[in-house]
């Protein structure tokens, strides 16, 4: 299990938004890096941008989970399957709480926030002044910070949920 934990930190999962213009790289449990096609970034509206981001995050969650389980199977030999809450009411409680877990991450300067409930629906808020500057690198940096913070928040709250015994 220790070998899995260590080796997982080197595993990258890359996801692309449906329109092919935004890319997210997750590495292990912490790294969260956004890159965006420069030409599309400058053409896109704020609404288009956040819509594509929201879809990207949903896809990324699925791909990261699959990669996590595959890697765990490969290293430990264990077979990992999605949690089945229907097995007992106690597990169903866990699943219900997990699906309603609210998490949020905010960039250091407060210009970008990402919020989610159950990691199925994402609300991305980008400060209008930051967007108006059309500084792609600045937006990406703020998104990286907010995303990293959101991931950390998700780990913390899921651990709290596990610790609470559902």
């Amino acid at each position: 299990m220790q070998r899995f934990r260590e080796s997982w930190q080197d595993v990258s999962v890359q996801t692309t938004s449906p329109n092919g213009c935004i890319h997210l790289t997750n590495r292990g449990d912490r790294e969260f890096r956004i890159t965006c096609d420069d030409s599309w970034f400058h053409r896109a509206t704020l609404g288009d941008f956040t819509t594509q981001l929201g879809r990207l995050f949903k896809l990324a969650l699925v791909e990261r989970t699959q990669a996590y389980n595959r890697h765990k199977e490969m290293v430990t030999g264990l077979q990992i399957t999605p949690i089945d809450g229907s097995r007992n009411p106690h597990l169903q409680t866990f699943v219900d709480k997990r699906d309603n877990l609210a998490v949020e991450g905010v960039s250091a300067d407060g210009t970008v926030s990402i919020a989610s409930v159950g990691l199925t629906h994402f609300v991305i808020t980008i400060d209008s002044q930051l967007w108006a500057r059309r500084d792609r690198l600045a937006v990406q940096r703020a998104l990286d910070e907010a995303g990293t913070a959101m991931v950390a928040d998700q780990f913390r709250k899921m651990y709290e949920l596990k610790q609470a015994g559902h």
Partner: peptide, 10 residues
């Protein structure tokens, strides 16, 4: 603390 408990061992 980094395993979300969402995967079951089968």
């Amino acid at each position: 603390e980094f395993d979300t408990g969402a995967g079951e061992i089968s």
